[in-house]
Design a protein around this nucleic acid. Sequence first.
DNA 1: AACCTAGCACGAACATGTTCGTGAGGCTTC
DNA 2: GAAGCCTCACGAACATGTTCGTGCTAGGTT
Lengths: 235, 235
Amino acid sequence: MTSDDRPRAPVSRRERPAKPALTRQGIIDAALMILRDEGLSKVTMRRIATALDTGPASLYVYIRDTEDLHAQILDTLLAPVTAAAPGAGSWRDRLKALLTGYRDVLFAHPEIARMALSTQPSGPNYLALGDAIVGLLNEGGVPDRAAAWGLDLLLLYPTAIAVELSSQKSATRKTEDLTALAAQIATVDAARFPHLARLGDELVSGAGPDRADWALDVLLDGMLTAGPHTPRKVS
Amino acid sequence: MTSDDRPRAPVSRRERPAKPALTRQGIIDAALMILRDEGLSKVTMRRIATALDTGPASLYVYIRDTEDLHAQILDTLLAPVTAAAPGAGSWRDRLKALLTGYRDVLFAHPEIARMALSTQPSGPNYLALGDAIVGLLNEGGVPDRAAAWGLDLLLLYPTAIAVELSSQKSATRKTEDLTALAAQIATVDAARFPHLARLGDELVSGAGPDRADWALDVLLDGMLTAGPHTPRKVS
DNA sequence: AACCTAGCACGAACATGTTCGTGAGGCTTC
DNA sequence: GAAGCCTCACGAACATGTTCGTGCTAGGTT
């Protein structure tokens, strides 16, 4: 868990000095301001410390580490991501729209997506997102266990795509990588990798949103399928 | 792509001096040796440079960055991961065994999993793994486009689980996190998150392997399902 | 032989995350 | 009031990834 599990909140010594008191929320607010004004790459512990007129080590009294900070940032950014009303389409369409909203937040700040993969986000907005997803799955007839276990899967794909974005130095390199990958696949050794060679361009075909749509359908269809290998009670 | 796309390979100046020549493969070999003897956390550019009696900046003539290095390490570690013969079970069982082998490699060195998410691994062993997966999917009747697009999904789940492992400082923290998450879920605000509250322990139930098995079945069932929303030709 | 160019080698430097250690203030106890 | 303890504040330091800039060597050209 994040610092929320600390036995008690630290109390700033700056209460009376001219400097405003350090608080966890104050650090997060400063981070969000820097995010807005300068971009996520500038949201460093040192930059935040400078903004709060202190040293970077001071922040660690209130913030566990940069992952903790990113988790808070993500949760704040998720505030606008909510499910549409039932009249706005089928449960599947509304679920797709909800996950598209989530994906858009991550695509806007892909560096944060790394955090979403490596820790279990637990902010109220993230929980609300999960709750809405489960609600829609129930509406679609997905059994409870499938919904519970599938929640992670549904959030995983958009998160992973965003992480892939985050490692690119620029959009140009991404394009270069895709072009090079396509070229590589076009010349892949058909003797060594016969199946990949046969698939050829199919491996890189389809626009991002088409692939995301398809992936979501695969997951939902899989969850709805009843069969001998659906999840059974673990004894 | 990795350094493989460079117009030509760098040629070391150390050919005649007492120091052995620097080469890309030599750097990778040194990294693997340190991995075996000291663990992945010690496989740093500085440590490798020390092992090769040079400075860390020298490595960047042959290695693009740490991601590039990790990609090579992963590929080497994937050499033993191969598909069982057809007589060893159904296509689904053999696919599960193959992905379990892949997961085991990542779990042994979870830090490398981060790289597998952020870039498109392209080493020969990784390609062979992908080729084997597609072969098994074809054997199971999965259509080509579903196989091509689903390949990423199949590899994603074990990779993501390993990434989650990699961020833990210790197994103890992971246990603490799970316990805290379970406690949090047990007390989740039923008014604010009614669906999550109702699912309760279901959200954290099931051992890792059970969940992984289930996730794989969901993906495979989803790919095999034919319906109006299966992938269509993109015009 | 002399000169020029390309590129390898690598130290220095920069940026960042995080920990360590010390100082000081506030609170509690005697 | 004094002493002791706890904890916040934060500079210093460490570790790492990566870039920059300079020196030097080998090969090619004249």
